[in-house]
Design a protein around this nucleic acid. Structure first.
Lengths: 200, 200
DNA sequence: GGATTATTAGAGAGATCTCTCTAAAACGGT
DNA sequence: ACCGTTTTAGAGAGATCTCTCTAATAATCC
């Protein structure tokens, strides 16, 4: 029917992710992505409505890939305590396996121009967040806690804490030490014990 | 002896911090800072060697202001456990009091172009970090822990964890809830108990 | 093989940014 | 009143970036 693409969407997004990891979101210019992918700028604008759309896709593809595995890890165990530990380990393991995408994940949507996104992109981001917080909310209940502050504690333990560790190590181009998974699991477990319905 | 300045260094840095908080480090262009401060670009280049130097000063002034209060809080108590709690509370309280500077603090030096800084600026950053880690290291010893992983746990509890909470709330323009200090103190205390020489 | 269609290819307009450079202005000291 | 110094003031060169637009290209379908 038509000429086959030489540069598909994922290929271009991969180039953008590499640039974001190397130079931050600001380094993701259309010119730089085209050069990194070896594609002409026309191909970029053929796939993406503009730089805002490209940045949104970079962010959303990364977050969705991360969340997919995260939610799977979270629901892989019947015991809630085990599920929580698996989730924290997943954060570290995923970042270790995908360092460039991890660098994106450590940013905020604002860094990728969220204010200038289309409604569709914003809705996609909201949908992912809702799915994640729904899972965390039900886990909170399963652990016997119910208040909004309890959800906050769980978010801190199962997402923010592991991401903090990753941030400290990947920043300035380092790599994650082998004990990172054990460390975050241990710390997360300690934080879970601060929830009202905890069992020592 | 000479014409008095209409725009001093702090005034220009304040404008840059406002821009960084509103649009991220990428929004801190020389043109934008000049406009925000109401100064001509010549005045900016009179004070700073270039954009890299300005970004370095924005980052360093912010981090040094933060660390000053942090170290004071850390050494204000004889009981190490109390000192640790005061430090975590300080992180949240300082960010609440200085939301624009907090937005800077939540970035990394890399976001402010660390790779392009002068040796002096890099040395200043290293000095601050050394001072902070020296304090954390001695606190680790005082708590009866000694390994590098123990320092890592303490860093996680006393710096990364409170900053994570701040990041989650200040991101997308929110404000810090009143219970934030209590929450981080409580969580940090739980993490301190995971150190080898802990007392329940 | 010719028509159709998605894609590549890149030139170029217009905007913005960094940084330099020159001239004027405002003060203190003598 | 004049001089030396610091600072303001902003014009402008050169680079870079976003985005548009046109033409060429390579596949499929009939």
């Amino acid at each position: 029917m038509a000429r086959p693409p030489r540069f598909d969407t994922d290929q271009l997004l991969d180039a953008a992710v590499r640039l974001a990891a190397a130079a931050g979101p600001a380094g993701v210019t259309m010119a730089a992505v085209a050069k990194e992918a070896g594609a002409p700028s026309g191909s970029l604008y053929h796939r993406f409505a503009g730089r805002n759309a490209l940045l949104a896709e970079v962010w959303l593809r990364t977050v969705e890939r991360f969340q997919e595995g995260y939610l799977r890890a979270l629901s892989a165990h019947d015991d809630m305590r085990q599920a929580a530990c698996a989730a924290t380990r997943h954060v570290v393991a995923w970042c270790r396996a995908h360092p460039d995408e991890a660098a994106v994940l450590l940013c905020s949507p604002g860094d990728f121009g969220r204010a200038d996104w289309s409604d569709e992109h914003r809705a996609r981001a909201d949908r992912g967040n809702r799915r994640l917080f729904a899972a965390l909310g039900s886990l909170t209940s399963a652990l016997g806690a119910h208040s909004a502050e309890d959800v906050e504690r769980l978010t801190l333990a199962l997402i923010d804490l592991p991401l903090s560790l990753v941030r400290r190590h990947l920043r300035d181009g380092g790599t994650l030490p082998g004990h990172a998974e054990n460390l975050v699991e241990d710390c997360a477990a300690a934080l879970l014990d601060t929830l009202p319905g905890h069992r020592a």
